[in-house]
Design a protein around this nucleic acid. Structure first.
Lengths: 206, 206
DNA sequence: TAGATTGTTAATCGATTAACAATC
DNA sequence: TAGATTGTTAATCGATTAACAATC
C-alpha cells in the first residue's frame, strides 16, 4: 500500500510553480490554468497537470485552478507554510549579500545568524546581524535547532564547513562555493555556481 | 550525415566535470578515471563515459584520463578557452557581489561593466568599476559587442531589462531575479534563485 | 602477461507527451 | 447546452545503466 516516492525532478519544479503563483497573486489574478502556467514557465501544460496530480486534485474542470488555493497547497507540500531559520557561513561579498537579501521573507525563509572566521569581520555588523565567530558555529547552530544553512566561504574551506554543519545537525545546505560537497545520505545539498550556469550557455554561443 | 544534437542535459553536466578537473589540477592529480570523477560528483561512471563519448575519445583504456588534457578539451567544447566579457545589470547587493566576485577569472568570464538606474549609484565605484547609467545600457553593451549578461535587478524590472538586453544583442542571460523571463528562441537564459533551491530541500525535511 | 579502464551497444528504466473521458 | 479544462491512461520518447570487447 506504499505510495511511490515523488520523483525528485517533480519536486524540483514545484518551487517554480509556487513562484509563478505568488506573482499572479500580486498581479491580482484569481484563476489560472495549466496552459497559462506552462506558457509563463516554458513547461508543457500536460506536465504541470501530471506533476500536480502526484499530490492531489487542485483544479476544476472547465475553469482551471484557484490561484490562491493552489499557492497555499504548494506551500504546504513544500513545507514553506512556515518560516525556516537559516545560518549563513561566510561574511564575504556573497554571504553579506545573502544576509541582506530581502527575498527570503515571504517565501518561507529567514536568515537567523551569520558566521566568519576573520577576526576583522567577527563582531562587525552585516545587515541586521553581528557576525559570529565560526569557531562557535557547531555549538550555536545546534543550540538554535537550525537545520538549514548556506555556505558562502572560499572553495578550499567549503567541505570543512559542510562537515561541521553536519555535526551541528544541519539537514539542508545551499552551497555557494564552486565545489561538490560530500555529505551523509540524510543531508540535502544544492549547489549554486554562476559559472556552471554561464558555461552551460557559452556552449551554444557563436 | 547530420550528427544528432547533444542533449542539453549532457551539456549541463560538462561544467561540473570541468570544475572537478580544475580542482584536480590544483591538487596535483595527473590522471583520473570515470569512477573517481563520478564519486566526487555523485554521478555514475557509466554516465560520465557516455557523456564524454558524445564529443570524442579522451581517455586511454587501462589508465583513464589525463587530467590536464581532458580539462583543456572540455574548455574548448564549452568555449571557455577564452574570456567572455559580461555586463552586470543592477548594482544592489547581488550585483555588487557579482561584480567583485573573484571566481570568474580562471573559468572563462570577466565582468566588464555594471549598470544601475539609481542616481545615487550611478558614478559610484563598485569593485573595479564605475556604475554606468542604465539608460545608456542598450547602446553601450551593443557597442562593446557584449553578448553575455547578468540580471541583478528587482523582480519587477527583470523582464524589462531582459528585453533591453535582447535589443542590445545579448545572447546569454544569467538571471538572479526570482521571475521567469521570456526571451526569443536564440537567446539563452539560466535562472539562479536561492529560494527555489531551498524549497526543493525543505520538501524532504522533518 | 595480468589488471584496469575505456568507449559503445543493448537493455532497462523513467519522464514527457498526446489524447480523451469526465465534468465544471 | 456548448466550451473549456482537468486528471489520468497509454504511447512515445529520451536518459541511464549494465555489460563487455577492445586495448593500454
Amino acid at each position: 500500500m506504499d505510495h511511490k516516492p515523488i520523483p525528485d525532478i517533480v519536486v524540483g519544479r514545484l518551487p517554480l510553480y509556487l513562484r509563478s503563483l505568488q506573482r499572479m497573486i500580486k498581479e491580482g489574478n484569481l484563476v489560472t490554468s495549466s496552459q497559462e502556467l506552462g506558457e509563463r514557465l516554458g513547461i508543457s501544460a500536460a506536465q504541470i497537470r501530471k506533476d500536480l496530480s502526484q499530490f492531489g486534485e487542485f483544479g476544476k474542470q472547465g475553469t482551471g485552478y484557484d490561484v490562491e488555493y493552489l499557492h497555499d497547497q504548494l506551500k504546504i507540500i513544500l513545507k514553506v507554510n512556515r518560516v525556516w531559520d537559516m545560518a549563513v557561513i561566510g561574511a564575504g561579498d556573497i554571504g553579506s549579500a545573502v544576509a541582506r537579501y530581502q527575498g527570503f521573507a515571504d517565501r518561507g525563509f529567514r536568515v537567523a545568524m551569520i558566521f566568519d572566521n576573520d577576526p576583522v569581520k567577527i563582531g562587525a555588523q552585516v545587515g541586521d546581524f553581528i557576525v559570529k565567530d565560526k569557531a562557535t558555529m557547531v555549538e550555536v547552530v545546534q543550540a538554535a535547532g537550525i537545520i538549514v544553512a548556506m555556505i558562502a566561504v572560499p572553495a578550499s574551506q567549503a567541505q570543512h564547513v559542510a562537515d561541521n554543519l553536519v555535526k551541528a545537525g544541519v539537514k539542508a545546505i545551499l552551497n555557494y562555493a564552486p565545489v561538490s560537497l560530500n555529505v551523509p545520505e540524510d543531508v540535502h545539498v544544492q549547489h549554486t555556481d554562476p559559472v556552471t550556469h554561464l558555461q552551460r550557455m557559452t556552449y551554444y554561443l557563436e
